[in-house]
Design a protein around this nucleic acid. Structure first.
Lengths: 141, 141
DNA sequence: AATGTAATTGATAATGATTATCATTTTTGA
DNA sequence: TCAAAAATGATAATCATTATCAATTACATT
């Protein structure tokens, strides 16, 4: 799977430099989490202390354009990135209003809705569903 | 209905000043549209040429907190505001990727999904669904 | 009507996330 | 080895939004 990513970078015309490798490792180590650029930076600096924030932004942006990462914006003022796991297409999230954690939802839940919209003459390209809730753990306390 | 809004402002401890009146009129004149603060400013300046952007932000923010307006953030870097029409609760949108216009969806489309999540121990508070599509008009050209 | 207090306003500085710029460094291929 | 291209890090610029603050306006009371 690492090989697949390198191929994608190659096809995009991007080299696998040390800093890009480190950033990728951070994303892989936090599979299922949604990280901001700042969060990626501080994690990556443990392995590459001189890494600059500009490189983080550039790298995340490029990897998102190659579908190596997903780029999402919740109702905050900043973007979050997450490893694009081939097995779990999503864009569906539940965000806990208490602890802020973000959970994934299964795909295919929106098929009916999209079918209705297509009948009205739209061509659906993508969608984003975010549900705001209190998660089970926070519900207990 | 204007009366209801004035009562809400009153209860929130806000006076109906000239500038707030003008901003409200802009929002009412564009029922069903989703405006940014800048867009509200430029429309409102036709009636109140000295209006400042800070007042626009403050007013929109307050009206949103009183549920006079809805505040939403699409995948852009800025917020959009829209008149909260009692009859059409929503938070469901279709945004045309070609012309950028935003269309409303009917409520209740998500009930099944939310029910499933509740069964897992979450307490659903709110949700946001945005579908990205090409609208019928743009599809023709 | 005059006055004092609180609310509001507009200009502008400050902030936070992101993007652009640019000189320096690194990589790569002839 | 060397020149050209790509990448990096520091930092300036940008854009939306929020904070600050002095000046204005509105309100309640005399």
């Amino acid at each position: 799977m690492d090989q697949l990513i390198k191929e994608k970078m190659d096809q995009g015309g991007y080299k696998m430099t040390r800093q890009r490798q480190v950033i990728l490792e951070v994303m892989q180590a936090s599979r299922g989490e949604h990280l901001t650029a700042e969060e990626v930076l501080s994690a990556a600096r443990q392995k590459a202390p001189n890494l600059g924030i500009a490189t983080v932004y550039r790298t995340l942006e490029r990897m998102a354009s190659l579908d190596i990462l997903y780029k999402t914006r919740f109702d905050e003022g900043k973007h979050r990135y997450e490893l694009a796991d081939e097995s779990s297409h999503h864009h569906h999230h539940v965000q806990c209003l208490s602890c802020g954690r973000i959970f994934e939802l299964e795909e295919n839940l929106l098929n009916d809705i999209e079918r209705q919209i297509e009948q009205q003459g739209f061509s659906v390209v993508n969608h984003r569903l975010t549900i705001y809730a209190v998660c089970p753990k926070c519900n207990q306390s």
